[in-house]
Simulated assay, not measured.
Amino acid sequence: MAKNNHTRVTDFILMGFIDSPGLESLLFLVFLNFYLVTLLGNVGMIILIKLDVQLHTPMYFFLSHLSLLDACYTSVITPQILATLATGKTIISYGQCAAQFFFFTICAGTECFLLGVMAYDRYIAVSNPLLYTVAMNPKICWRLVVGAYVCGISGAILRTTCTFTLSFCDNNQIDFFFCDLPPLLKLACGDTTNTETIVFFSNFVILANALVILISYVLIIKAVLRMKSSGGRAKSFSTCASHLTAVALFFGTLCFMYVRIGSSKSPEEDKIVSVFYTVIIPMLNPLIYSLRNKDVKAAFKRVTGRFQVFRNV
């Protein structure tokens, strides 16, 4: 059988903003503001947790890593969007595309597992408060976080290897804002069976993790309802509601993007959802965990008060 005369792709063209002519300056300002707020919120949360001793608990230890992941994975995507809007350059090299895909997948995959760890932490805190400090000692907390990173990195290596060993021929126009899996699969000109099998397995892992979190919260709600103190119930519900909101936003958008691969959906829908989970959610998470959290507000007052004292000395 004769081989098809294909040209090997060495770079890609990101088509995400082609259908929005004249809006580049406005979109640049919007994305820049979102990015600055995201960095300020997440880096600020990390610094606050580091500086305030009363936030040196397992829950805030995990939250600091969630903030780190949010800051990192929006930084993998948003600067590329800003550069495209500022310069009009939509070309990204094959290597840059693979690197962007790899690091984004690490951050998103690790966050997926970290949210499961945080659900487990809340379950232990609510169901066994007397044994909480023993069950979630620093060594166990580090093991859980390292385990989340190992799972995220392993998944990223597998997905990136399977995706970028595919053949990309002739058409190199990615109808998206960045190098993500669904639009890359559409460009592949070879057999994608192995990659789609890996994608299916990854989707199963996402759904299984979401199911574990859901079961954890069913048990948490049952434990909270058994509490005799109304104050304790209110505090537990407030803390768990913040985490559950973050989980719903994260897994909801992931399921929309990845679990629905192969179904009929428009590129415009994918673009809107991609902006939401790469830009909006990382910006919202610090707000979700701080606005209704009295401990974070009190810590912020203590830390800022400390700096005011130093300035007055």
Rank of each mutant, 00 (worst) to 15 (best):
N5H: 14
T7Y: 09
D11Y: 13
I13F: 09
I18Y: 13
D19M: 05
P21Y: 05
L23P: 05
E24Y: 09
L27D: 04
L27P: 03
L32P: 05
L32Y: 10
Y35L: 01
Y35W: 10
V37Q: 05
V37P: 01
V37S: 04
L40H: 07
L40Q: 08
V43G: 00
I47N: 01
K50Y: 14
V53S: 15
V53C: 13
Q54I: 06
H56S: 12
L63M: 13
L63F: 09
L68H: 03
L68Y: 07
A71I: 02
T74W: 01
V76A: 08
I77C: 03
P79D: 02
I81W: 09
I81H: 02
A83C: 12
A83F: 15
G88K: 06
I91M: 12
G95A: 15
Q96F: 09
Q96N: 15
A99Y: 04
Q100P: 09
Q100A: 15
F104V: 05
C107I: 03
A108W: 09
A108Q: 11
G109N: 08
C112G: 07
G116F: 01
M118D: 02
D121K: 08
D121S: 11
R122T: 03
A125I: 01
P129D: 06
L130H: 14
L131M: 11
T133M: 14
M136W: 05
N137G: 07
K139Y: 13
I140T: 13
C141F: 07
W142E: 11
G147V: 01
V150H: 04
V150I: 12
C151R: 11
T160L: 06
T161Y: 15
T163L: 06
L166H: 05
Q173W: 08
I174P: 00
F176D: 06
P182D: 04
L187Q: 08
L187T: 07
G190W: 05
G190K: 04
D191T: 09
T193F: 09
T197R: 14
T197H: 14
I198C: 09
F200Y: 13
F200V: 12
S202Q: 13
S202P: 04
A208Y: 10
A208F: 12
L211W: 13
L211I: 14
L214M: 12
S216I: 01
L219F: 11
L219T: 07
A223V: 08
R226H: 14
S229D: 15
S230D: 15
G231P: 07
S238K: 11
S238R: 11
H243I: 10
L244D: 00
L249G: 03
T253Q: 02
M257S: 13
Y258G: 03
G262S: 06
S263I: 08
K265R: 10
K265V: 10
E268K: 07
I272K: 08
V273L: 07
V275N: 03
V275D: 01
Y277A: 02
T278D: 01
V279S: 05
I281W: 00
I281F: 02
I288V: 10
Y289Q: 00
L291M: 12
K294D: 15
K297G: 11
A298I: 04
F300A: 11
F300C: 08
K301F: 09
F307A: 13
V309L: 12
N312G: 10
V313C: 13
